[in-house]
Structure formats: C-alpha cells, structure tokens
Simulated assay, not measured.
Amino acid sequence: MTHDLAGVLAGARIMPVLTVPDPAAAAPLADALAAGGAPCAEVTFRTPGAEQVLEAMAAHGGLAVGAGTVLTPQQAERAVAAGARFVVSPGYDEEVVTKCRELGVPVVPGIATATELMRALRAGLDTVKLFPAEPLGGTALLRALAAPFPTARFVPTGGIGPGLLPDYLAQPAVLAVGGTWMATPAQLERGAYDEVRRLTAEAVERSTR
C-alpha cells in the first residue's frame, strides 16, 4: 500500500470532496466522477451511510477513494476497513495520525496555523490540509506558510470554487485542491450526474493547463 498521498494521487491535482446523504448515489456518482476524469475523491464522514458510500465508491476501481472529516482513531479504522486509501482530518489529532500509520495509509491532517504545521512536520508528515482555506486568508496565507516551511505540501480545502481554482493550482506548494462544488448534496438529490461529470471535467481540465 502507498504510504504517501502524492503516490496515491499519482499526479492528480483535483480532489472532489463529497458529502453523500444517500448511499444509493454512490455508484452513479463514482461513474460520473470517473467519466469526468477525476482519479480520486474524498468521502466525508458526515453522514450515517458514509462507510457504505466509501465501500461502494472504492469498489468502482477507477477512483482512489479516501475518507474525510475523520475525527477519531475509531473512524479511521472503520474508513480503512471500508476501502479508504487515505484519511483526511479537519484538524491535527495525534491519535488519528498514529492509527493511520498503524493501518498503513496516508493521513492528511488539517492545519490553520504555523504552530499546527510545525507539529505535523515534526511528526514526519509532509502533506497537510489547509482548512478552511478561504476564510483563513486563501492563497496569501498559503504563501506565507509555505515560505518558512519549504518541504510542506498543502491540500487547501474550504470555500474554494472554480473561479479560485487557478490561483491555488499556481502555488508551487499545493499538491492538490479539494472542493465540494463538483458534486454537492443538492446535485446528488436531483440525480444531476451529467452536471457532476461536466463540472468535474472542467476542473480536471483547468488543473492540467
């Protein structure tokens, strides 16, 4: 199993962040994302059926699926059992980091300050989630954090839409950008999978320019 996020993403720079209320949407959603060219996706643990969604999407085969909003070691364990190839947390939690290492999966903790980034780097992690990116200061903050920590790589998430995507992708320290706009709960409720495919394809195209 690959132990670093860059290896799992295999060059992908767009990460759809998914909150899926109904597990029945998992299979058609995976089809739409893959058709749009997304090689990865993050399924948030914010819904009762998150494990079922993760398991169904992981079985698709065309996506590297991870678990997001992981708050406890127990959630991390359940996520990996359901097929998660990486784990993302909104903050830095040592127990979650330790559990993910035991499980042999990449973990991407959330950071919002230089102090939290230093803790992550000291723990041997080189990739962190800048969250919530836009409310914290966007690319200006990202550049400010990247300057004294040149080995750090960021996955900014939170408040980022297609209009801001090019600015984030232009930052050398950004490994990938997480976003919810490609597949929102409202789109899934409407069954708007063609829209999901289109928005995903547009984001993937922007990321390869």
Rank of each mutant, 00 (worst) to 15 (best):
L165V: 11
Y168N: 14
G178N: 08
V155K: 04
M182A: 05
A183T: 02
A173L: 04
A183G: 00
P185V: 11
A176P: 04
L169P: 08
Q187Y: 01
G163T: 10
D167C: 02
P172E: 11
A186W: 04
V177T: 07
T184N: 05
P172G: 13
Q187S: 02
A173F: 04
T157I: 14
A186S: 10
R190N: 03
T157D: 10
A176V: 14
A192E: 03
A173E: 14
R190Q: 15
P166S: 13
G191S: 06
P162R: 15
P166H: 13
G161N: 12
R190I: 02
R190A: 11
G163R: 13
P185I: 11
T157H: 11
P172V: 05
M182C: 03
Q171R: 11
P166F: 07
A192K: 01
M182R: 05
Q187L: 13
V155F: 06
G163C: 06
P162Q: 13
Q171V: 14
L169N: 07
Q171K: 11
P185Q: 09
G191C: 09
F154M: 09
P156W: 08
P156D: 15
A170P: 09
Y168W: 13
A186D: 13
V155W: 02
A183Y: 01
G158E: 05
T180E: 06
E189V: 02
T157F: 11
E189F: 02
L169T: 07
L164P: 05
L188N: 06
G191Y: 00
L169A: 04
P166W: 11
G159V: 13
L165M: 12
G178I: 12
G159H: 09
T180V: 12
Q187A: 06
L175G: 11
A192G: 00
G191Q: 02
G159N: 13
L164T: 11
Q187R: 05
G163I: 04
G191T: 07
G161R: 07
G161W: 00
W181I: 09
P172F: 06
L169V: 02
E189D: 14
T184Q: 09
G163P: 02
R190M: 03
A186Y: 03
L164S: 15
A186T: 06
Q187G: 00
L188D: 00
Q187F: 00
Y168K: 12
P166Y: 10
P156R: 12
E189Q: 15
G178K: 07
V155A: 13
A192D: 04
I160K: 12
D167R: 15
G161V: 06
Y193K: 01
A183V: 01
A192V: 04
E189W: 06
A186N: 03
Q171C: 15
P172Q: 13
P156A: 13
A173T: 08
